[in-house]
């Protein structure tokens, strides 16, 4: 593998699946994450990785439902890592540093009453991911990349 580090994403994709997420659909929010979790269980991924990835996936899914028009969640499993991307079309995030602050939320009162909008979604994604990347363009959308390493000795 040495000397190929920069080509690591070109390695063989063992499994790939996409889930569509609809903005505003609070009733079904989280279902894609549950399907994803079941797939990872069937494949036999380490339970701690599944637990952390399911937390990140749910939070990302709920954010698309809460803030964006629609989005795609994609899982790519490689021999050495799992890559979860969530890409949406929506308002985007102007100040990512602010959005990443624990407790920061622009959720409406109605949404907070439902138990969403604690401002812990992005911080918890970051905390549970091995690598967390976020990029966003205002009035276009947001893209999240969550990577889990599969070959860690302590994983």
């Amino acid at each position: 593998m040495k000397g190929q580090i920069d080509k690591i994403t070109d390695s063989e994709v063992l499994f790939e699946q996409e889930f569509k997420i609809n903005g505003g659909d609070f009733i079904n929010a989280g279902e894609s994450s549950s399907k994803l979790k079941n797939i990872l269980k069937e494949i036999g991924i380490n339970t701690d990785i599944i637990r952390r990835l399911a937390i990140a996936a749910y939070e990302a899914e709920v954010n698309v439902v809460t803030y964006a028009r629609h989005g795609i969640m994609r899982i790519l499993i490689y021999p050495e890592k799992i890559l979860l991307t969530i890409e949406d079309e929506g308002p985007g995030i102007g100040d990512i540093d602010q959005a990443m602050q624990p407790g920061y939320s622009t959720a409406t009162e109605e949404i907070r009453e439902m138990g969403f909008g604690a401002g812990m979604g992005l911080p918890n994604m970051k905390k549970n991911a091995d690598i967390f990347n976020i990029s966003s363009i205002v009035d276009k959308g947001t893209k999240l990349e969550i990577t889990m390493n599969l070959n860690d000795k302590n994983a």
């Binding site: 609070f26 009733i27 079904n28 929010a29 989280g30 279902e31 994450s33 549950s34 937390i55 749910y58 939070e59 709920v62 439902m114 138990g115 969403f116 604690a118 812990m120 979604g121 918890n124």
Partner: peptide, 28 residues
């Protein structure tokens, strides 16, 4: 009653006590 909190901390086989009654509690 905070879904992010439950998602982060509730464990398999646990009984979840909440005052939320909306449909998303099922997904959680």
């Amino acid at each position: 009653d905070l879904l992010s909190d439950v998602i982060a901390n509730c464990k398999e086989g646990y009984i979840w006590i909440t005052l939320q009654g909306h449909p998303n509690i099922v997904a959680v």
